[in-house]
Each structure stands twice: as C-alpha cells, then as structure tokens.
C-alpha cells in the first residue's frame, strides 16, 4: 500500500549548475524540493532566470540535475520517455508532417496500428477544435492552431505527466485566454499530472491547483500557493475574489524581481 502514499513526482533536493564558455559557474537551481500528486496541476511561476524552464527540462529528462534527483513513481528520471510529454513554447511541430501525422507520431512510436492511430489522432484533434484541419501543414495554420496541435500531439500518447514550457508565450492576448480555458478543460478531463511553466501571474493562478513561485539567482522555490478556485475554470473564475486577491498579492511579491530584471536588461 506504500505506493499509494508515494508522490507521483518527487523533486528531491535538486540543484543544477551550468558552466559558461568562460568557465564561470551559474547556479540555475538550488535545493529545489517538491512533491506532486497524481493528477495535480502545478504552475511554475517566476521571472526569467529563476530556473523554471531548467526544472521542466530536468523533469522531462532532457538534462540531468547536478545534485539531487527527479523521481517518478519511485524511479529516478534520467532520460526522456513517453510517460512525460512536452509542449514547447515554439510548438516544435514536425513541419513536414500534416497536423494529423504530427499527432500520430507518439502513437506510432508506441507501436499502434495505422488505422488505430489515425482514429485516436483525429479524436484528439477534434478535442482541441481542429476538426477539419487534419491535412494542413503547420505553416498553413495560425500560431494558436499550431499550439493546439502540439497539445494534441503531447496528450495523444496518454502521458502520465504533461509538461508545458510557456506554451502560450508566443500567442496574442485573446488566443491566450481561449487556450487557457481549453487547457484547463482538457487537463481536468484526463488524469494526467501537469507541470505548467509561465511568467504570467494570472495564467498561473487561473490554471493551477498549486502555484509554485520561484525566484532567481540562484533559482529556488520561494512559496507555494494552493488554489481555492473551483472547476470549471472560465471567465467567472477571473472575477472570483480569491483569484483577484491572489494575483494582486503575487504581483506585489514578484514586482521587485521584475523591476530588477528590467533594470538589468536596460
């Protein structure tokens, strides 16, 4: 029965140090500890340089931590596999494949038969409102549609953990709001755990069960906010007093970091 108590994903004392070209060492992450339960939606929120994307890469298995470990179901994560799929900010769709074939890719990798994966992929494209666009190539559709297809591609192989790396960062404000609601709907339908990296406060609070706030240099967890919002998350959630209060509070918390970032970039 101990497996039930074990967290789905455990980030255990994780640190990541990069060496720059001049040999200088940069501490991207330091002493990060986090336990995530199955089906939880976690937003990783923070200014740039707080290591939130690095943490996501470590969870995906694209890189390995310098110290500590990422543990999924009691097993250390060392390389990427299909139980943890990723949605990238720049979509990373396979440009030479139709949207349909893109979504089929993970199913093909799983060894699903041709007709089976065609059906599953069509179903997922319909779920992200892309019915009728199956045979389009990525460059023929808008950015929002590309990201919908990328979400379908990541969800189709039925991953345990869905990792989203600022997926809405490249989209315009209206599309972003639409997709936030859709991501919330899609992920609450399934039972996969979601790690959502963003620097948008309202986005993080709108989507998450828990918002993990990070701070930079070295990247570490500053605080964790557990959501009071119910489901479904929609326009009404944005006027919920708790939502408004939390967004304002987080803004006050993070403001110094952002101001510092702006000065450094100037």
């Amino acid at each position: 029965m101990s497996t039930l108590i074990k967290p789905h994903l455990k980030i255990s004392d994780v640190g990541k140090i990069y060496a720059t070209q001049e040999g200088k060492k940069i501490v991207a992450l330091q002493n990060v500890n986090l336990s995530v339960q199955r089906g939880e939606f976690i937003s990783l929120l923070g200014p740039s340089g707080c290591g939130k994307s690095t943490l996501l890469n470590l969870i995906a298995g694209f890189q390995n931590p310098t110290t500590g470990a990422v543990i999924q179901n009691g097993v250390e994560v060392l390389e990427p596999n299909a139980t943890r799929t990723v949605v990238f900010q720049d979509y990373a769709l396979f440009n030479w494949m139709t949207l349909q074939k893109n979504v089929e890719f993970g199913l093909k990798a799983k060894g699903m038969t041709k007709s089976e994966r065609a059906e599953v992929a069509r179903d997922f494209l319909a779920r992200v409102q892309l019915a009728g666009f199956e045979d389009k190539l990525p460059h023929e559709v808008s950015g929002g549609m590309k990201q919908r297809a990328a979400i379908a591609r990541a969800m189709a192989p039925d991953p345990e953990i869905l990792l989203m790396d600022e997926p809405l960062g490249a989209l315009d404000a209206q599309t972003r709001v639409l997709l936030q609601e859709e991501i919330s709907r899609l992920t609450s339908e399934g039972n996969c755990t979601v790690i959502f990296v963003t620097h948008g406060i309202d986005e993080a609070v709108f989507l998450a069960d828990r918002v993990v706030v990070m701070s930079p240099r070295p990247g570490r967890i500053r605080e964790i906010v557990t959501s009071d919002l119910g489901f479904p998350r929609n326009a009404a959630s944005r006027t919920d007093p708790w939502f408004v209060r939390t967004v304002n509070k987080l803004w006050e918390t993070l403001k110094p970091d952002w101001q510092k970032e702006e000065k450094e970039n100037a």
Binding site: G61, W96, M97, R153, P157
Partner: peptide, 26 residues
C-alpha cells in the same frame, strides 16, 4: 532545431523512428 529532436524523444521515438521520420526529413 533541438526542440524538434526533444519533442520526438519525449514522444518515445526509437532511434529508427527518430532518424527516418524526424532527422532525415528535417
């Protein structure tokens, strides 16, 4: 694009699938 390779890897692509469906056409 490194992200396209990463996308293929996290979707569970074998070496053969990675080469035939991603590296070569890209």
């Amino acid at each position: 694009d490194r992200n396209q390779i990463n996308a293929a890897l996290c979707l569970g692509a074998s070496r053969k699938l990675l080469f035939v469906d991603v590296l070569f056409p890209a």
